[in-house]
Amino acid sequence: MYIYLPIAEVSMNVFAITGLGGMVGFLSGLFGVGGGFLMTPLLIFLGIPAAVAVSTEANQIVASSVSGVLAHWRKRNVDFTMGFILLIGGLIGSSFGVWLFAFLKTIGQIELVIRLAYVVFLGLIGFLMAWESSKAILKSRTPGASRGKLHQHNWLHGLPFKIRFRRSKLYISALLPLFIGAFVGMLSAIMGVGGGFILVPAMIYVLGMPTAVVVGTSLFQIIFVTANVTFLQSITTQTVDIVLAGLLMIGGVIGAQIGSNASSLLRGEQLRGLLALLVLAVCFKLFMDLTLTPEDIFSIEIKR
């Protein structure tokens, strides 16, 4: 069954799209990752224009983050002070990102920049995940491994404008979360991701936040940043396809439920290793598309 996507202006199989949403949703539920970093490149592989894939995925992440944050809110695992500062940075960064996106689109380089950004970040997280899971697998075989320190203060924490973050039990400079928020916000606009895969490690390792509040707080920030991206992309580039987003949401919701139920039944480390391989495979495909001699060095774009 084919459906003509009104903004993407391509005809797509409904089951391919909801199936993709379900598959990525399943992985999200299983690992607690956002999934935007897999969804956007897979949509591009399916033949959705890269610009539409990015903006629409931002819209879908609003939905998945809302459903995710509610659970954390009930458990009071959201540091709102930290969330607001990350959010201010995120709004600045994502607004700049959308402007940059529109500029790159007019000069015909947006596909390249999206693909390059994905190669870099998928390569990075794929490698880190593979490394971590192989370490975890080894660790489970050698008992008695030592624990590291919870968190250390460094010079970044001592920058001016120090603020007390009660729920995170931190007293650090507000500039640091502001900057992290801005950087992730920019990535969010250009790559169509929530940015959790950068934000979560940054909050743990750079800010030193306790793990319990990290996911809830990052989801809180991601909702507003992706909503900002959705809004700005709608008014500047008109690339948000709500039909596509709706289909992805349906698949994503169902997949995420199955995934989170399955997570208690399956072994974590091996699966994390498999996810790492999947991420690296997507990265490799994008990398090869950029570096191998193209079938045709000419391409045509028709103004619609």
Binding site: S64, G68, S234, I235, M249
Partner: peptide
């Protein structure tokens, strides 16, 4: 844009 966000929040 607003509609897309409202839709997503509602769906979520």
């Amino acid at each position: 844009g607003i509609f897309a966000i409202v839709l997503a929040v509602f769906a979520g």
